[in-house]
Amino acid sequence: MEIEKYSGRVLPGPIENIYVYQAPVRLWHWITVIMMLPLAVTGYLIGAPPPAIYVGGEATFIYVFAWIRIIHFSCAMIFTIAFLMRLYWAIVGNHHSRDIFLPPVWSLNWWKGLWDQAMYYLFLKKEAPSWVGHNPLAQIAMFAMFVLGSVVIIVTGFALYAQQWAWGDGWMALFGWAHVALDEPQAVRTLHHLMMWYLLLFSMVHIYMVFREDIMGKESVIGTMVDGIRMFKAKEH
């Protein structure tokens, strides 16, 4: 099977199944999925707390909001570690593992592929090309929405977390610059909150797309994230 350089387009020729997503990539993907759900829910609740569940109780022994926050913080830690591990794997892993971090914007083929794929999704082109890794459109979406979104939400999140330290101490020494860069902690809070919605939008599109591709496209998608192997469906006729 021949594959175009940079874009990852499958060129006409014999077809075979390929091992695309290595174990750390798959592990990271599913950890992230598992973490994002509680993060979004607890994050939303931190911004807009529910009415008191226990009214009149002994506050000292009730930790509803504390639980909400600790779940948020713990999941955020795992999310971040997984993200860092994924970054590391982007360096040492196979070239598919770099897909979403470094869209090959310098490649003409890649731009062509982006165009073809976009035309296909807009129903202006009947057939989409086949791809080994992410298609260029998915790649750019992953990069702009997921990767950048994650970086921003991680940085702003830690900047907010860091507020329990003095300026210049502890986590504040590492992330205080975010408050300075955005001028004020309230802006950091707002951005963090907006990024939650941003990642949610990404997730909606992402989930729709993988199901659509899995049903209508020519390659396996969901299964690939389980066993790492991309299967190319035989032509129906």
Binding site: I62, W167, G168
Partner: peptide, 29 residues
């Protein structure tokens, strides 16, 4: 601190030492 404020009074948030903090943790608002 980094912003030029005396650490003895400005190194922690009002929230960190607020007597209503248990209600915050309890989700009682």
């Amino acid at each position: 601190d980094l912003q030029g404020r005396p650490k003895m009074f400005y190194s922690q948030r009002i929230h960190d030492k607020c007597y209503r903090r248990p209600h915050f943790d309890a989700g009682q608002f």
